[in-house]
Design a protein around this nucleic acid. Structure first.
Length: 523
RNA sequence: GGGCCUGUAGCUUAGUCAGGUAGAGCACCGGGCUUUUAACCCGGUGGCCGGGGGUUCGAAUCCCCCCGGGCCCUCCA
């Protein structure tokens, strides 16, 4: 059974409806690691719906979280916003300067991410956490946390094993400059928390408004109670023993809520570059990923892996394999009575992964298979500059009957982006030589030259289609007495500058006759 | 220091919760498709399941120890 279905089944015992939640801080560009957070939760949500369990999927944006530091993409003028909630900070302009007209920092980064989510079929209920503070929904929780201050203090110290300062307080008010940093609590009279900030200014925060926030570990536990969260997969950073999941559970219970089961997913790494990190430049954004990888396959990347396995996101050679694995999928057609228990499990898991990979819930995975392998398509995309040429080639080769569907068109569009970009693997790149390199020419032996001469002659008169060209190659090889293998290698060397490549006759049939003959004769 | 996750064929992995002869894909090799090269079909090679000990009639699976990799205990998907 697929992990999402398994989780849905376990959740069914918790009552209804399910509230499946993701939470992310919009502190900068989103990356595909965040996509795992989102998709893990969204797939569980879908699995619930698919098995008839009522469910909501909520994306809580941590817009009340403060700016922690001035990131590389921000100008130094953001220094003054450190500690200020992201919802209250102006978005950066193209130079990284605060742009007073550009809306909030949180919205600025959230917008494109939500657009990307839409493309992969994810349309969550979005909750801006600062609004939950602003409309007073946190007030009871804050009051309760302050009242139970000692107990919470004890939970955090016992569970996480770290020492909290004596004057620790479960609520951080905003100071006179709008920052949470360095503000000391001096007293509490419901609903006001009194404080003094770093400038010596005193004031009071109304807990029914967004005039302060609870520290992360309590904030998280409180929102479980407020929103009735039944499931929230968290990154492994939260999941470690003594981490915020472990403290959140008892704190949530203390606050009168019923916490979700602990659920932890592994991180996505970029091939050979370790974990995603914006500050180290190790990052691929969801939009960039979507420009290369079709949305159903991007979903499949997440769906095919168990949640506690790390995912290596590879936009190089491995993408061929990933995509072709998706393409190979076939709806099981018979009863499979002779499958072993294991094979049945594997098949059902695979079916689940394919089902959950669909952009539109409920659509048939079989409708979203392009019918052409990524490898083959990558060759066509490289040798055919116009799309129509690709379609006709596919029709001739029998990959396509009739007109290309939406799915296949999307595949080609992204394939072209991939081919044109930096991620496309060199060994898959086809570069037709405009002239033959001297070193290469010197490596070609006399027997091969004889073959190439004969071929050039044959190509002048043969029909210009794959079959005839192939035939001409074979006869030329036979007539010149060279082994087929050697003939092909020589041909590849001349055309591509290396001894191997895609089916050479189809490659040649896409080239202009005169220029091809020119190259071959130039030896 | 304390703890969590993880280590199965060259690569990616299923199977570990409920112990019963190690499954798959890629790659590779062989064959086929009225002749091959990154299309397609069929078949095959390949695994002391990280190491050691224990429980058991029987262990990849349960228990203990060790080794390697990742992560957390300060905010981090």
């Amino acid at each position: 059974m697929h992990w999402a279905d398994y989780t849905a089944q376990k959740l069914a015992g918790r009552g209804s409806p399910q509230v499946v939640v993701s939470g992310i801080t919009p502190s900068g560009e989103f990356h595909i690691g965040h996509l795992r957070e989102i998709l893990t939760a969204e797939m569980i949500h879908r699995a619930c719906l698919d098995s008839g369990i009522q469910s909501r999927y909520v994306f809580i944006v941590d817009s009340m979280d403060p700016l922690r530091r001035v990131y590389d993409f921000l100008s130094p003028s953001y220094e003054s916003y450190i500690g200020v909630p992201l919802a209250n900070i102006p978005a950066p302009d193209e130079n990284g300067e605060p742009d007073e007209e550009g809306g909030s920092y949180a919205d600025f980064f959230l917008g494109p991410f939500l657009d990307a989510l839409k493309q992969i079929g994810v349309e969550p209920e979005v909750v801006m956490n600062h609004l939950t503070y602003e409309n007073g929904d946190f007030a009871e929780m804050i009051d309760s946390a302050i009242t139970n201050r000692e107990k919470i203090h004890e939970i955090i110290e016992n569970v996480s094993g770290r020492d909290l300062p004596e004057d620790w307080f479960p609520y951080n008010p905003l100071g006179s400059n709008g920052s949470l940093d360095g503000v000391k609590v001096t007293g509490y009279e419901k609903p006001f928390v009194h404080w003094v900030d770093t400038t010596g200014t005193t004031g009071k925060s109304d807990i029914r408004l967004a005039e302060g926030k609870m520290p992360w570990r309590i904030d998280w536990a409180a929102r479980w109670a407020i929103h009735g969260v039944t499931c929230e997969p968290a990154g492994k950073d939260h999941g470690a023993a003594g981490g915020s999941y472990d403290t959140g559970i008892p704190i949530c219970e203390l606050l009168g809520g019923k916490p979700p089961e602990k659920m932890v997913y592994e991180w996505i790494q970029l091939k050979g570059m370790g974990p995603m990190s914006s500050s180290k430049g190790v990052t691929i954004g969801p939009m960039e990923a979507l420009s290369l990888v079709p949305p159903e396959i991007l979903r499949y990347v997440i769906a095919r892996s168990k949640i506690n396995r790390h995912i290596e996101f590879d936009t190089g050679t491995a993408l061929f394999e990933m995509a072709d694995e998706y393409e190979r999928f076939q709806v099981p057609n018979e009863e499979d009575g002779d499958l072993s228990k294991r094979q049945r499990i594997a098949r059902d898991t695979q079916l689940g992964a394919m089902r959950l990979s669909q952009v539109e819930r409920g659509s048939d995975p079989a409708d979203w298979i392009a019918g052409v392998s990524f490898r083959h398509l990558s060759m066509l995309a490289q040798i055919k500059s116009d799309d129509q040429g690709v379609w006709s080639s596919l029709q001739r080769s029998g990959h396509l009957s009739g007109e290309p569907g939406f799915s296949l068109r999307g595949r080609l569009e992204r394939m072209r982006n991939w081919v044109d970009g930096e991620h496309f693997p060199e060994e898959a790149r086809i570069t037709i030589q405009s002239e033959v390199d001297r070193d290469i020419a010197s490596e070609i032996g006399n027997d091969s030259r004889a073959f190439l001469e004969m071929l050039a002659r044959g190509l002048r008169t043969c029909d210009w289609d794959e079959g005839s060209i192939g035939e001409t190659i074979r006869t030329s090889a036979a007539d010149s007495g060279i082994e087929n293998r050697k003939a092909y290698i020589a041909l590849y060397m001349v055309i591509l500058g290396r001894g191997y490549g895609p089916r050479v006759s189809s490659l040649m049939s896409e080239m202009d006759r005169e220029s091809l003959i020119g190259i071959i004769s130039s030896i």
